[in-house]
Amino acid sequence: MSQFLNKVVVVTGGSDGIGKALVEAFLQQGAKVATCGRNYDKLYQLQSTHSTQPLLIHTADVSKEQDCKQFIDQVIKSFGTIDILINNAGVSMRALVEDVELDTIRKVMDINFWGTVCCTKFALPHIIKNKGTVVGVSSIAGYRGLPGRSGYSASKFAVHGWLEALRTELLDSGVNVMWVCPGFTSSNIRNAALNKAGQSQGESPMDEGKMMSSEACAQHILKAIEKRKRTIVLTFTGKETVLLNRFFPSLADKLVRKFFFKNGELVK
C-alpha cells in the first residue's frame, strides 16, 4: 500500500514539466492533489485528463502573496488539510548582468523565493499538525552561481538558506524540510526563461533530449519524500558540479565558464 494513499499533496507550478509529472505521480499513488499555475488552459487540460481522480486546480501567480493565500485557503476548503507541500513553481533567466534589467531579477526573485516563502508560510500550520513535509524544488544554481543566470542563482541560494533555517527551527516537530536539486532536466523552464527585458525567450539553448526526463525526476522526488531525506542532488553532472565547487572552486569557475561560453559569447 502506498505511503501517500489519501495524503493531501500540494504542488505549485503543476501545469508543466516536473510539476506536472509530480501531480500525475502522486495521483497514481492514491494521493489527493492540489496544484496551481498561471495558465488556466493547461491546468484545465490536466484536470480533464484526470477527471476521475481527486485533483484540485487553481489559477495563481505565486509571486503575489494574496494569490498564494487564496490557493492554500482553497486547498483547505476542498481537502481539509495539507500533508505535503512541494514548492515547484519557478522561472529561470538568461542574460548577462551588464545587460539585464533589474526588474527581471526582481521578477525571478518574487516567483522563486517569495513564492516558496508565502506558500510555505500559509500551509505550515497544517503541515506541522500532520508532521508532514515541505519540499523546495531547487537547482544546482543554488550551490553554484551560473553565468547568465545571476538572478536565478540568487533566488535558489536564498531558497536553500531559508529552507535550511526552517528545517532547523522544526527539527523537533516531526516535520521534514527538504530541497531537491534536479540538475539539467527536460522541462519547459528554459523555454520560459526570461531574457534581459523580462520576456520569455521562447526556446531552449540546451539539448533537451539528453537530459533526465521530468517523469524520472518526479520519481526520485517521491522516493526522497518517502525516505524523509534532507536534500538530494540529481544527475552525474549535478553531483560533479556541487563537489567541484565545494573542493576546487577556482577550477569550477573555469569549467563552468567553458561550458556556458564560446568565443566570449554566452551560448547556453
Rank of each mutant, 00 (worst) to 15 (best):
V23S: 05
K20L: 11
V10R: 13
D16K: 13
S92N: 09
L243P: 00
G115H: 00
G145A: 15
R94S: 08
K223P: 00
A21Q: 05
V267M: 05
I221D: 02
K69C: 02
G161T: 09
R230Q: 13
A89Q: 05
L5W: 12
G174K: 10
T235E: 11
G202K: 12
Y44A: 15
K254G: 07
G148E: 04
S214W: 00
K229L: 02
H58M: 07
L27K: 09
H58A: 07
Q53E: 13
T12P: 13
H58G: 02
A31C: 11
S138Q: 08
L243F: 11
V23P: 04
N88I: 05
K229C: 10
V134H: 10
I76R: 08
G132K: 00
K227C: 00
A193L: 08
P249A: 02
R149M: 14
P249D: 02
R94Q: 11
D61R: 01
N191P: 12
Q3F: 14
V137E: 01
S48D: 12
P182G: 04
S173N: 10
F259N: 04
T133M: 01
V10N: 13
Y143M: 04
G145M: 12
F157A: 06
F79W: 03
L146A: 01
A34F: 04
K7Y: 09
Q74M: 06
D207C: 06
Q28K: 14
L146W: 04
N130K: 13
D73P: 01
T81R: 11
G148N: 10
I221Y: 10
Q74L: 08
G202M: 11
V91R: 03
D83N: 15
T168Q: 11
G148R: 13
A89M: 04
R167N: 13
G115E: 01
P249K: 08
R230A: 11
T235H: 09
P249M: 05
C36K: 09
P147K: 09
G19K: 09
